[in-house]
Amino acid sequence: MNVDVTHYLVLGAVLFVIGGYGVIARKNIIIVLLSLELMLNAVNLTFVTFSRMHGDMIGHVFMIMALTVAAAEVAVGLALIVAIYAHRETVDIDVLKMLKG
């Protein structure tokens, strides 16, 4: 095994940033949610990488936790999307600005 741990970390960072770009730049709320999953996945990769590096499995446990949170988030998020779509007939988050003060 010759791959340096740095490569994994850089890959995680790249994936995270791509996901972040998706969250910020995209307007389709479903894509935004997908990008969010991408970011979470990047973080998971980092967890596991550090776990491997230290030979400690806590990173694995944390990954499971993060996975659970992601699952719950997706479920609620999708339910909200469905509800909003039924109500407003749109998935454009720029149109959904009822929080404007």
Partner: peptide, 17 residues
Amino acid sequence: LRAAQSGILRLYVGVMA
């Protein structure tokens, strides 16, 4: 200050980023 509360979520996330 109200101008900051645009309601555009992407802006919020962008500022946070």
